[in-house]
Structure formats: structure tokens, C-alpha cells
């Protein structure tokens, strides 16, 4: 198989879609969680009693990876031997929203969560508002997830 054939292979297209959907969003989640986790550790070092609230904030950015995982799972489920080239490309495109939006939203959610953790560091009672701020970012990841699901379902 020549390299050019890869572009004409529907299964390759579909698999790349799954890769993008999971890999990119998981990278974002890892980064977001990583930042928020460092911050959480920093706060807990000073105020050990704040572990609970900071942990919730840290975990928020991990959802994007789950969404990516769902989409990747669905795309892989669609792969079969009689896939046409159009379907393959469509599946690839369907993976993009969950992947790219997932990455960006995860990173930003991580930062917002860090800010929320800083907020908790100063005023522990404000943990609710911190979570709400971070959840706003989640909305876009969810929308991207829905779009990806709809797209995969259409194929």
C-alpha cells in the first residue's frame, strides 16, 4: 500500500477521527487537571482542611477526556469493512469537535479551576462559586460532545 492509498482508505480516516477525539481531549484534560492539581496541592499544604473542595475543582477538567473517550468508542463501533470513503471522512470530521473543543475547554477549565482553588485558599466558603465558574466552561465541552454524537449517529 502506497502512502497515497492511506488517504483513500476509509478505515484509516475513521480511526484518525477516533484518535483525534480521544487523544486531543485527553491531553487537554491532563494539562488542565495537572495545573489545577498543583494549585490544589499548594493550598492544601497551607490549609489541609481544604482538601475536599480543592479536589472537586481539580477533577472538573477530567470530563473532557471522558467525552473524547465516548466519541472515540462510538467511532470505532462504526468501523466496518464496507465503509465508504465519504463515511470514513465524515467519521473523522465528527471526531474533531469533541477533540479540539475538548482540548481547549479542558485547558481553560483547568485554569478557571485553579482560580477557583485560589478563591478557596482565601475564602473557603466560596467553593460553590468557584465550581460554577469552572462548570460554565464545561458547557462548551458538552455541546461539542453532543454535536459529535449527532454527527456520528447520522453516518
Amino acid at each position: 500500500m502506497k502512502f497515497i492509498d492511506l488517504f483513500l482508505n476509509p478505515q484509516a480516516w475513521a480511526l484518525s477521527g477516533a484518535v483525534v477525539a480521544f487523544l486531543v481531549s485527553a491531553l487537554g484534560s491532563a494539562k488542565g487537571c495537572g495545573i489545577a492539581g498543583q494549585a490544589a496541592a499548594g493550598v492544601v499544604a497551607e490549609e489541609p482542611s481544604r482538601f475536599g473542595s480543592t479536589m472537586i475543582l481539580q477533577a472538573l477538567a477530567s470530563t473532557q477526556a471522558i467525552y473524547g473517550f465516548v466519541i472515540a468508542f462510538m467511532i470505532i463501533g462504526k468501523i466496518s469493512a464496507d465503509l465508504t470513503l465519504e463515511q470514513g471522512i465524515s467519521l473523522f470530521v465528527a471526531g474533531l469537535p469533541a477533540g479540539i473543543v475538548g482540548y481547549v475547554s479542558a485547558v481553560f477549565q483547568g485554569k478557571v479551576a485553579t482560580a477557583g482553588i485560589h478563591l478557596v485558599a482565601k475564602r473557603p466558603e466560596a467553593v460553590g462559586s468557584g465550581i460554577i465558574y469552572a462548570l460554565t466552561v464545561e458547557l462548551f465541552a458538552i455541546l461539542a460532545l453532543v454535536v459529535s454524537i449527532l454527527m456520528v449517529a447520522k453516518i
Binding site: K31, G34, I35, A36, Q38, A39, A40, A41, G42, V43, A45, E46, E47, T114, I117, H118, A121, K122
Partner: peptide, 14 residues
């Protein structure tokens, strides 16, 4: 990003 820990600790002692 590597300062996330330091920043948070500073916020806590601020």
C-alpha cells in the same frame, strides 16, 4: 504552568 503550586500556596498565605 510550573508555578501553579507556588502561586496557589502564595494565595493561601496572602
Amino acid at each position: 504552568e510550573d508555578y501553579a503550586y507556588a502561586t496557589a500556596r502564595v494565595r493561601a498565605v496572602e
